[in-house]
Design a protein around this nucleic acid. Structure first.
Lengths: 335, 335
DNA sequence: TATTTTGCATTACATTTTATTATGCGAAAT
DNA sequence: ATTTCGCATAATAAAATGTAATGCAAAATA
């Protein structure tokens, strides 16, 4: 999984990892920065941190130098944040709080065993929102009916790197290539992208014979935000049009969102045309709730894999894993 | 919004915030820990970090003392991670990478203006997955039809603290109380919780006359993971049964997931009974796609608010904000 | 308008933190 | 049996961080 963000990796590709020392700003100065930004006062921040005002001043300066830009605008008797600081501050808060929570949790659950999911017939599985909504949820409900005694837990996340605390037994992951060296991963299917809309929409907006016509349609977008945390390449309308040699310097209209299920909901309700992923929308194409208005498709490098995240899996995990592979094969043949 | 996680706050309630100094483990030692854990060797980590082996040893010790527990098991010539370290390591990686990315982004986009969303007739709005799926998506699509020239962007997230880089103009937030001091927030509606299922499910499993009967039914759960990042109190089947004075020491069966839309999808397809939120499922109750098998409900302290995240809003933002308030009022009266 | 006050910057110096060197120890490898 | 490897530890050196004192500029006050 060449392009998968390192943070999805449990142990794969660790060898190529860089150390953080070079990439990070001075960490301690972040705490000072946060306090100073919160108070908009070095003096008050110093009081809070039990140091002198000079210390705060110096720490802030160190951080500003590391980031190579000012974080505070010094007026005569007041401070304000620079645009950079406004962007940076929430990130710092988030990361520090995250670490604080994590450390606190560690201290508490000292006799942490964290084997809950592995014993007692439990299996946890992770996937994207989209895949869960369109495939996995149905599959797991079916599995649950067949094997009610296996306790299944479905964790969805669109950020790859989400919930690092959470380790699931299985994971359905998208990537651009495969590396089977460390974790056991099984190819499920490749993917393909094409425009989709509802039959009702096409009936109401019939003039849609080629890619260029799309420019005059209600386009529904997966916002850049959707792709931000994903490791695979964003494929949006802009990329699509470019692949069709159509110029899109003019800004594209239409609602933008960061969730594929929501996008699909909008398409199903006849609100416009969106880009569809073959293996996500196959069922909806079969039932003709969705149709391809034009027959042009874009082959993605992206593929789905089922990954077993641990070396030694318990029986129920292997069981579900096998079951899913079979289910996916059935699904694939049905297309 | 008393209980809202501080990280959703742009500036509200900052005064009550704690500083991080006390809550955080020694930050620099985290970098050393990460490298040591990656190499499973203090010597190699030292080489990577350009320090001596002794320095690594000491830093690890400092961290272990701060966390009050060992992170490495020292065998004679090799190391392994303790369970605590296995839990902690991904968190550390995540947070450090997050900071590194954020800092790198800052350095690059030096002339960062970040006003994209405010000019040019753009509005961005954030909500939970659930609220977007069941309400907001429809609303915004309608708004988009009425005002196609206003570019709307919908950002969904179930983590409160998600996407700190992202600042939206509007935000539909859930909380337990209201603080109107800093940001303009408008109460939308309170909430209420009760069991829901599909008519088909009830027909197939008719013996459901009171709360106690529920124990014998297919329960569908919002997993603890769903609540982990939310600031409001988790309300799951356990809490429900407790409120009904029903003992649930025995473990409850049924599929667990961390996404409300997925849970609802399962319920709609007749897979069991889940807990429904009044204002999310009202439309589905009206169309009788869902029903209340028993008439017992739990009043939640939780309420929805529309929040304007900035002091000075552009015209389209105010416009959408007003439109939503009106739309929400219509929705409420329709119940 | 003069005076005081406030709040950040700066410098020289003190303190604390962190790294180094050197050494020891125990188990694997030879 | 001997060597080698890898971590721990202690004393010490170096670096990082904090302090105290002072300066400066603009607001607040008189």
């Amino acid at each position: 999984m060449k392009n998968l963000d390192m943070l999805t990796l449990n142990c794969r590709e660790m060898s190529t990892m860089q150390n953080f020392k070079q990439q990070l700003p001075p960490l301690n100065s972040l705490v000072t920065f946060e306090a100073a930004a919160r108070h908009l006062s070095f003096t008050l921040a110093a009081k809070e941190l039990n140091v002198t005002q000079a210390a705060v001043s110096r720490q802030v300066k160190i951080l500003e130098e590391a980031l190579d830009q000012p974080l505070f605008i010094r007026y005569n008797r007041r401070l304000s944040l620079t645009p950079s600081a406004i962007i940076f501050l929430p990130d710092v808060r988030y990361a520090l709080q995250f670490l604080a929570n994590s450390a606190a949790a560690l201290k508490l659950q000292k006799p942490a065993t964290k084997q809950q999911s592995n014993n007692q017939n439990c299996v946890s599985i992770a996937s994207t929102q989209a895949f869960a909504t369109l495939k996995l949820n149905h599959w797991l409900l079916q599995f649950n009916r067949e094997y009610p005694n296996i306790r299944v837990k479905l964790i969805t996340s669109d950020t790859d790197i989400n919930m690092p605390q959470q380790t699931t037994d299985l994971e359905i992951s998208c990537g651009d290539a495969i590396d089977n060296s460390v974790l056991k991963s099984t190819f499920l299917f490749a993917d393909e992208i094409f425009p989709i809309c509802s039959p009702a929409y096409l009936a109401a907006h019939p003039k849609l014979n080629n890619s260029a016509d799309l420019l005059n349609h209600q386009l529904l977008h997966l916002d850049a935000e959707h792709w931000r945390n994903l490791s695979w390449q964003a494929i949006d309308w802009h990329v699509w049009f470019t692949s069709q040699n159509i110029d899109t310097t003019a800004k594209l209209k239409g609602l933008r969102m960061n969730s594929y299920p929501l996008l699909l909901q909008a398409v199903l309700n006849g609100n416009g045309v969106a880009l569809g992923w073959q293996h996500l929308v196959s069922d909806l194409l079969k039932t003709e709730e969705l149709i391809k208005p034009i027959d042009v498709s874009y082959k993605s490098q992206r593929a789905y894999y089922l990954i077993e995240t641990k070396q030694a899996q318990s029986a129920p995990v292997t069981h579900l894993s096998q079951w899913i592979l079979q289910r996916a094969a059935t699904d694939k043949n049905a297309c």
